[in-house]
Every structure is written in C-alpha cells, then in structure tokens.
C-alpha cells in the first residue's frame, strides 16, 4: 500500500502534475505516513528519474520545470506537517536569489531558482528589480548559505558588485557564498567582483551551488 503510494508520488513528479502531487501528499498525511519519508522515498525518486532522463536527452527543460512545480506543491503540503511533528526538512542549504535592481529579467533567474529547489535547496526567490538592501536583509533573516544574483544588462550587472560590498559591510560575507549569472556575465566578471560561483545555465548552477555548500 505504502509502496504503491510512493510509486504514485514519483510518477506525479515525472508527469509534472502539481495537483496530483499535492493530493498524494495529503493522502500520505491522512494515512499517518512520516512526511519526511514521503518526500525522500516518494517524491525524490521521481526527481532523480527526471534528472536521469534529462541527462540522457530523453527529457527537456520544461519537464524539469514541471517536475519542480510538482515537487513544490508536494512540499507545500508536507512541510507544515513536518514542522507540526517537531521535525525539519533536510536540505542541501538555503539560497536567496533575485534579479538585481534596475533589471526586470525574470526567466533565467526563475529557472535557476526552480532547478535549485528541485536539486534539494531551500530557495527564497526575491523576484526582479531587487534592491541591494533586500538581498542583505533576507540573507540575514533566513541565515542563507548562498546569495544568487541575476543580471541581463551590462548596465545592471554592476549591481552584483554592489550587493557583494553590502554583504561585506553587513558582516555577512564570510558566512554566505555568492553566485552570479546572466547573459552578459562571464567567469572573468565573476572573479573580478569577488563572487564565489558562476554558471552559464540553470543546470550548471545546481552543480556549482552543491560545490559551494560542500566546500563549506
């Protein structure tokens, strides 16, 4: 019975169906199944399967995003139950992410946020046109491990440097890793402004984030 439910959970992720995933999460709670187990033995194998199929070229980016949406829906149901039972969901780390002030480009940043979330991070997406102070305050509030910044314009990517400086001024820089990305951003730029990580695409960003948190 439980195995069957776990299989259905994995399938809801593979199908990228948030409604079904949320419904299965509710069923698990009603059946008294440990919500952490529901995530790890039910939904996560679905995410792994999607990741494998993507790397084999059998699935595409929209499949990953839909899987991410389904995962989010399941966790939204299960997480309050975990908290109620006095537990805590294990994540790889906490990420605060946003597009810098003056820049309204959304998709790349949202993709990275989704991929990090699917990849096992707790992600706070601050949206677009995010003021410098908002990055700093949120990072402090949630005790972030990583701050990620997107910029699509040569004129706004300078804000990435401003945020890094503001994190230093706030005394947070030693505690958080900084990742930057966006079309005009290069590895050379990332090094120049003292960022810790850089990736050209959302899939690569997850690998970089995992490296940064494991490096401590």
């Amino acid at each position: 019975m439980t195995d069957e439910l776990f299989r259905a959970m994995a399938q809801s992720i593979i199908d990228g169906d948030p409604d079904v995933a949320a419904e299965l999460a509710r069923k698990a709670i009603e059946a008294g199944i440990d919500p952490l187990e529901a995530i790890n033995k039910g939904f996560v194998p679905g995410v792994d399967s999607v990741g494998e199929q993507y790397s084999r070229g059998e699935m595409f980016l929209p499949d990953l995003v839909l899987a991410g949406e389904a995962m989010k829906a399941a966790i939204a149901v299960l997480e309050p139950e975990i908290t109620r039972q006095g537990g805590q969901r294990q994540t790889l780390g906490t990420v605060v992410i946003g597009t810098v002030e003056g820049d309204i480009h959304d998709i790349g940043k949202t993709l990275v946020a989704t991929m990090l979330s699917v990849g096992g991070f707790r992600v706070y997406d601050l949206g677009v046109d995010v003021p410098i102070t908002t990055f700093v305050e949120k990072a402090r509030e949630v005790n972030a491990d990583i701050v990620g910044m997107s910029a699509l314009l040569t004129t706004t990517m300078v804000r990435q440097r401003d945020v890094i400086e503001a994190l230093e001024d706030a005394g947070l820089r030693s505690r958080v890793k900084v990742m930057v990305g966006g079309a005009p951003v290069t590895r050379a730029w990332a090094q120049e402004i003292g960022a810790d990580g850089y990736s050209e695409d959302a899939i690569g960003a997850v690998a970089v984030a995992k490296q940064l948190v494991s490096a401590g």
Binding site: D106, I107, T110, S199, D201
Partner: peptide, 27 residues
C-alpha cells in the same frame, strides 16, 4: 511577465520543436 516553461501545453508540443544532433548549443 510569466513564462511558458511549466505549462502542460508546452510539454505537449515541445517535441514538435527541432532538436539538433550536431549543432553546438552548449554553454
């Protein structure tokens, strides 16, 4: 301002889009 990535319509039709074997679209 949103995106079409997570739409079922996208998933339904995306395989009609051409996928190269030999074009270099890597980072």
């Amino acid at each position: 301002g949103g995106n079409f990535l997570a739409q079922k319509h996208t998933r339904k039709h995306m395989r009609e889009l051409w996928v190269p074997k030999f074009m270099d679209r890597r980072p």
